[in-house]
Design a protein around this nucleic acid. Structure first.
Lengths: 341, 341
DNA sequence: ATGAAAGCGCTAACAA
DNA sequence: TTGTTAGCGCTTTCAT
């Protein structure tokens, strides 16, 4: 037998009231008034006994667990930022966060978690092109609130927090364009596993549109992430057109691409920041300060996206009456200037 | 009223047995034999009804929650690695992870969490010099299993997972020393907020001892992290002694220090990897691949440390009989070679 | 080997 | 306004 737990009964006894009064004081149950002195007595007893409600017992009654599950790729540092936001926002609601890395846990198993733990909601950090029809189906069959971060962009049923990538590109371009005579060149790095998706399209098209608006001849380059030769050739092509007085600026979609560019520039003897500017439209690698010279990037506010997801979850929890509303929440990347552009 | 839950009663009814049999099948309760056919029937009913035990109800009976809490700095990418290990190992035990960032939650509040949620254990990711006497006291008063990662090194009561920093330095030195005629120079970066601690001492002393063993004149340098001048002077001092045929190797305690070194080397026109080698005795920044040239580092296996912490927790849970045992578990850093050394 | 029954601590409907 | 009571779903004696 373990140590005796302090229960609401003990509190009630000490305060000279019944357990329901204790419960009412704790939960502020509407429709039940509690006299001021009684309330004081209860509060005092709680203090003195160091009473804490048993979340499991409470959950048993209410059918809730006061927990939300966070699901994402445990190897991606971005997920930690998301978690930070989730944790922070949940704390405000008195909720806790149950971690569900997607290494060994498939999304479908989350349904079981829901059944076992009575999770009150799920926040999933997905890749930008992610969408799972099966999951959408399961979800619509259950009353479990769900919010995706970065995923399900084209699935209007699902609430998701999305980044306005078009805008991030425009802001980046406006930033580099503050210097006169720059020639922005877009570099879209690609990876086998990541197919073209709306985010890449948005960025590319924002670049093209911006060039049109600013009467600049666009140059859009697709390069595979491992393709060192490709980057090298791109850099060399810049030298050829050196006749132009314009300062070339490489704007790349992923900050990991900057590593390749720096590497080749280093080999070719180009000085980034003077011969050539570099700017990244995202900051996935979080290497802004680690690059030399430091990188100018558009930082994506993952922490805030985590917080927003929590608020969106609670909106679903509270208004379970079906309202017509936009299920997509958009956030903006923020410029972090560095020495590279 | 929400959707009716499938309970063990439903399963029992469908299988034509009583609830206790269902429970016995589920938990393999010792001392209770269940006939083969009955067992089959129960299993089949569970399948068909898609029954899942209610963790809260179970927890209520057993006094456990099948959850462990993970506590750490949500802004440090290292913590995510730890979480990955924790999550992974917990899954094997059928446990879940409750996240407790230390942003808004003080360690003392964890006690409340324990009372509320009946947490079965706590894993805390601490800084290397961390130790909180008050917490040690609270802990000894409660039966709550606790394991610290990187903290409480000098607190023999507490179980902690620690890194053998001496060894990481020796391995790094042996690695650079494979080339003939290198001159290893130790650089200890310092930060206001981080005082000298056992880990720094271990590294420094391992360096000095190694130099003695290898009959090399040691050079141990303390530099403040922001002290660009200091790094610059250090690099310049290397040129002066250029008369020596030895290739200087800077071994630094933190991989963040490499950024400063690269930056100054870049300014002074030194080529890292040829004029000068650089090696880091840890990999806190996780910038191995992002540096140009790529960095040689000793990587600390935080994922595994997380897993080990979970195993240590379960050892405490299972053997609650007090055994005499070593409370400190040591792990080794692993060499990741790069181009810098 | 199996079933009946007693709670775990809480909340909410109801009775006073 | 306050106290009584009936479960929530499970595990675990204790009888059978």
């Amino acid at each position: 037998m373990s140590i005796k737990r302090v229960t609401s009964f003990d509190v009630a006894k000490k305060a000279g009231v019944s357990r329901s009064v204790v419960s009412a004081v704790l939960n502020g149950t509407p429709g039940i008034g509690v006299g001021a002195e009684k309330r004081e007595a209860v509060l005092k007893a709680i203090q003195e006994l160091n009473y804490q409600v048993d979340a499991q017992a409470r959950g048993m009654k209410t059918g809730k667990s006061y927990c939300i599950a966070a699901f994402g790729d445990m190897r991606s540092p971005l997920f930690l930022q998301v978690l930070e936001g989730i944790q922070h926002a949940c704390a405000e609601y008195g909720y806790h966060v149950l971690l569900s890395g997607n290494q060994n846990l498939a999304l479908s198993q989350l349904t079981d978690l829901y059944l076992q733990r009575r999770i009150d909601g799920i926040i999933s950090h997905d890749s930008v092109n992610y969408s799972d029809d099966g999951w959408v189906g399961e979800l619509s069959a259950s009353p479990l609130p769900f919010v995706s971060i970065e995923g399900y962009a084209e699935e209007s049923e699902i609430v998701s927090i999305l980044v306005d990538y078009s805008r991030s590109v425009r802001e980046a371009l406006d930033y580099v364009n503050r210097r006169s005579d720059v020639l922005p060149i877009y570099v879209q790095f690609q990876e086998e596993s990541v197919k073209d998706n709306w985010a890449e399209r948005d960025r590319r098209e924002a670049y093209l549109q911006w060039c049109t608006d600013n009467k600049i001849q666009p140059s859009c380059n697709l390069v595979h992430l491992d393709d060192e030769q490709g980057v090298k050739q791109l850099l060399q092509s810049l030298t050829k057109s050196e006749g132009s007085t314009k300062l070339p600026v490489l704007l790349c979609n992923w900050s990991i691409g900057a590593v390749s560019i720096y590497r080749q520039a280093h080999r070719l003897g180009f000085h980034i920041g003077t011969d050539l500017l570099v700017m990244c439209a995202d900051h996935t690698l979080r290497n802004q300060m680690h690059m030399i010279p430091s990188l100018s990037v558009m930082d994506i506010p993952y922490v805030r996206m985590g917080e927003m997801a929590v608020h969106a979850i609670f909106e679903q929890i509270q208004h379970d009456d079906v309202e017509i509303k936009a299920n997509k929440l958009w956030v903006n990347a923020q410029l972090i200037p560095g020495e590279s552009a």
